[in-house]
Design a protein around this nucleic acid. Sequence first.
DNA 1: CGATTGCCTTGACTTATGTCAAGAAGGGGT
DNA 2: ACCCCTTCTTGACATAAGTCAAGGCAATCG
Lengths: 208, 208
Amino acid sequence: MQDIRKIGVERKVNKGETIFFEGDDCNGFYVVVSGTIKISKLSLEGKEQILHFFGPGEPIGEVPVFSGQPFPANAEAVAKSHLMFFPRQAFVDLITDNPSLSLNMLAILSKRLRQFTVQIENLSLKEVPARLASYLTYLAEEQEKADAVTLTISKGQLASLLGTIPETLSRIFAKMTDQNLIKVNGKTITLTDPMGLEELSDNGQFPS
Amino acid sequence: MQDIRKIGVERKVNKGETIFFEGDDCNGFYVVVSGTIKISKLSLEGKEQILHFFGPGEPIGEVPVFSGQPFPANAEAVAKSHLMFFPRQAFVDLITDNPSLSLNMLAILSKRLRQFTVQIENLSLKEVPARLASYLTYLAEEQEKADAVTLTISKGQLASLLGTIPETLSRIFAKMTDQNLIKVNGKTITLTDPMGLEELSDNGQFPS
DNA sequence: CGATTGCCTTGACTTATGTCAAGAAGGGGT
DNA sequence: ACCCCTTCTTGACATAAGTCAAGGCAATCG
């Protein structure tokens, strides 16, 4: 850790500020110290697909360090954030001398690959209601509450994370409420029927 | 390389044979020596989303080695194939003593992360015609022919790779032919209008 | 306290793509 | 050469989800 700190450079960004754009050349990567960073892709028409939100302790923009290509997506702060920047060559040297660091890095990349396989599966094989159900179930686990969860992002951003648009998401929230699966109150979602949600998430059918 | 060979175990599989299933525990990974391996996810209803095709020299199933979780997808031989299997612990030991090996592995994982970001972008932000146009353009580059490409997989499998179904793909081939963008003859596709294809791939609009 | 702004919801409509069903075309094997 | 079996194509239809437009709600700021 001391060695790592030595090569790091601070960077602070405000909400809405861009860290890097897709296609930018990369001469290093960042680790989030505080705040939240959104990684996303944009279409020509302006539609956004969010790939990740990253918080404290997570590295961002590490892919081009090893693949030697430009950044594959955009990174933007969704809140005032504090980052550490690590220059590429210094980090490569560090990893070369430090097997456990490289194994950690391999583990991180592997986990992200796994997340992407899930995201691709969701986009391609599931419809939006199933994706939302699966997200809510995941949130409940992460927040360690079986019965109610709090959205950490706006519904518009959630739509973009799930690969849809706010209108569609809103309608599905309404439908789930109709079916007594959930209750929505602003950013607080009460999971009235967690089993039903899991069923919906697995087989795409609203339970009868 | 000698050290690597030492810990490898041969495995031969026939066309259609499964190497591993999603969810299987993993005690090592494979490298393709010859043949082609399909990596895919299946929905409950049986729809398939293909994630990759891997050929000679490419590792498969390496994600769980580092993330310590089960395989995230299925692997199946689409042709008679020859693989090398590397037990997990032996490989981890090897990588620990061998920085350049770990850097290579990091580079491979990074490239795959990048490919996945493109696949997610395609699924979420582009419609099927644009995905097909982009695939054909990519094939032309890979095969280093500007004017005609040969599909290396069946059209049904291509549909699954693009996140759609054979019927839809077939209709889009027909439409592209109508618009004089391509000419289809079995597995041979003549790119009548490569510029038009790129345009379609970028902005999703059939050129006028 | 009212107004401005951004975010969310709802409605009417359009469209891309999936479903189901039938037929055509191609490729191997006997 | 024939037949079988898989793959591909085409048509008619259903539907999930996007587009466009209007209005509501809530938070923030002067």
